[in-house]
Design a protein around this nucleic acid. Structure first.
Lengths: 141, 141
DNA sequence: AGGACTGTAACGGCGCGTAATAGTCG
DNA sequence: ACGACTATTACGCGCCGTTACAGTCC
């Protein structure tokens, strides 16, 4: 059975990964193509092999999608996250650069959230209109 | 001044319309290309002229965008709206078809609203994470 | 007459979907 | 050797953004 086979291994191949994270094979491959999530190994026959960390990264990417960043920006942000781990060991100049970028993304996230809230309000208004049209039609029949 | 000039006329040209509705010229032209909003007249030199009704239709299209329908589906839905005006005069068969389609769109709107709500929750969660990273960085410096 | 406005045509780009064809694994 | 899985390549799409160049309006 495919499940038990793969579950025992430290490295998963693309099908398992895609199913766990909830992305298509095409998407996972595309994310590699743009340098967003690179599998940490390959088999002899060039099958992609994903580590646990790779899978986590993919999952984070998927959950970040509502932020509406480009994949390039996402790659940048994920790098920032990794660089904040040992932030204390870095040059003050770099520390500034990192935190500045992070606060830039935080700002963008705020704007995005406000946009989504507006979209939600609009969508609800239009649903109301649809329901109203339906009600009007029902009285005629 | 452009404002007073155009405001006096019943028909507006594309620049005015685009600004009022908040769409780009390119987008407005594209909507015509796909048959979504056709200007009701042209000048001798082929400049597009939009009536008040045209502008309203464009505005409705813009406000409907959060519903995530394709432009084709939007055209269909706008047609449905117009056909519900004189619904009583139509054949029962057609009445059924119209209301069925409308309720289909209402259902889609519901699904879309739920998706937006999920996106909003995700985005808020990730903003929280960004803020947390920033706070952690602040304590280091 | 000059500057603002508009026209058409065409290419570009993101984030994948969707074949088509061929190779790899247990 | 079989079937499930995977690889690469390449074209297509929705929704415009963005030139580029030419014509129109006041």
């Amino acid at each position: 059975m495919a499940t038990s086979r793969a579950a025992d291994r430290a490295l998963l191949q693309i099908g398992e990964v895609a199913e766990r994270v909830g992305l298509s094979l095409r998407t996972v491959r595309y994310y590699e193509e743009v340098g967003l999530v690179i599998p940490s190994a390959r088999t002899e026959g060039r099958f992609r092999l994903y580590s646990h960390a790779d899978v986590e990264r993919l999952d984070l990417v998927k959950r970040m999608k509502p932020l509406g960043l480009t994949l390039e920006a996402m790659a940048d942000l994920l790098d920032l996250f990794e660089r904040t781990r040992d932030l204390a060991d870095r040059q003050p100049t770099e520390q500034r650069a990192i935190t500045d970028k992070l606060s830039g993304y935080a700002k963008r996230a705020d704007e995005r959230i406000m946009r989504i809230e507006r979209d939600l309000a609009q969508a609800r208004e239009l649903r109301a209109r649809l329901v109203a049209e339906l009600a009007a039609a029902a009285t005629i029949r």
